Simulated scan of single mutants.
Amino acid sequence: MDYRRLHLVTEIVRQGSFGRAAQALGVSQPALSKAVARLEDQLGVALFSRGGGATLPTAFALHIVQYARERLGDADRITAEVRQMAIGETGRVRIADEPVARTGFMPQLVRAIVERFPALKVEIVDRAASDMGDRLAAREIDLGVASRRLDATQPGLKAFPLLESPLVAVARPGHPLLSAQDSSPAPAVVLPSRSPELGRLVGRPANDGAGDIIGPDFDLVKTIVAQTDVISHGPAFLFAAELADGRLARVPARLEGGPYALSLFVTEGALHSAVIREIAVIAQACGAQITRSGGA
């Protein structure tokens, strides 16, 4: 016996008449009567007794209703859970990010998502921009936050621009490079690889890796820069707080290759989800807020 027939019998018992049940189900009474008659023929028993203006369920119908309530209850629960997931009340969203985004953008984005969808599980996945498009296409992640160059290499992706930020070089206050009279070479902290721009800035050949410190954690990079004579560079929004409170100083140099452009990437199929669409709006609002605050 399929779901539809269980539902018909249950509704007739609940309403107490074929007429009211037909109205509740959105079908005509003759169509409902024919459906029940076919079911009775199939089972070889009467499900309802009719007389005196009343429709009374037989023991067979009551047995079906008891069975149906258990099954329909499970179906209703599953339906409610799926609907909740669709509107973001529950469920999971997987967001991949690259190191720059994780340090300078993701904390604000995750905070905004949690405020909007308090029961939504947010999973942050560390992925390089080079394979983020493949992971999106394979549905291993739902969203990717990375530099905008991903858009040109991965067909089928939708890019939502978040912010643009100029590249800056930073050093500790009082660093020799901040003085125009002192051009002493200094090591560079670079993420994730050596930088020709910084090599030129400190007077070393672009392929000279001597003295470089390479690290994947921008918070660690900023701590090293603030406490030593090494320098670093990156999008301005990464260093906005430290530059504002004087923990770091901007090195007066013009770096090539900017500005850094950050985008949110998602597949066109994932945009059928109302949650994903709203997260895209939230992400763009976060980018605009960082820009307004002077971090980009």
Rank of each mutant, 00 (worst) to 15 (best):
R116N: 05
G294T: 12
V145H: 01
Q289R: 13
V266A: 12
R102W: 05
P107D: 00
S193C: 10
A96T: 08
G91T: 08
P205H: 11
R277L: 11
A31F: 08
S130Q: 14
P30H: 06
R135P: 03
P235W: 04
R247A: 12
D208V: 03
P30D: 07
V145L: 02
F105H: 04
P166M: 04
G211I: 10
A37W: 13
A138V: 12
I64Y: 02
G44N: 05
A112P: 03
L150V: 15
D142V: 03
S263M: 12
P252Q: 02
A169M: 07
I95D: 03
R14H: 14
L62T: 15
V266C: 05
I124C: 06
D245N: 12
R77L: 15
I113D: 00
Q154R: 09
R116C: 07
A138Y: 04
G133N: 02
R172V: 06
R292D: 09
V189K: 01
Q108A: 13
T103W: 08
L178P: 04
I224F: 09
G258S: 11
G144A: 15
Y3V: 06
G234F: 03
Q23T: 12
E11Y: 02
A285D: 10
E70C: 09
L178N: 07
V190L: 01
S130V: 10
L248Q: 10
I213S: 02
E40Q: 14
A283Q: 02
V36P: 04
A86Y: 01
R194S: 15
R194E: 10
E164P: 03
F60N: 13
D182Q: 13
K158V: 13
L198P: 01
P57A: 07
R247L: 02
I282V: 12
C286P: 00
I141V: 15
L191S: 05
P107M: 03
L109D: 00
I12R: 03
G209S: 14
G287D: 11
E197C: 09
P99D: 10
R5S: 14
R148P: 15
V168S: 01
F239R: 05
V221C: 06
L248S: 01
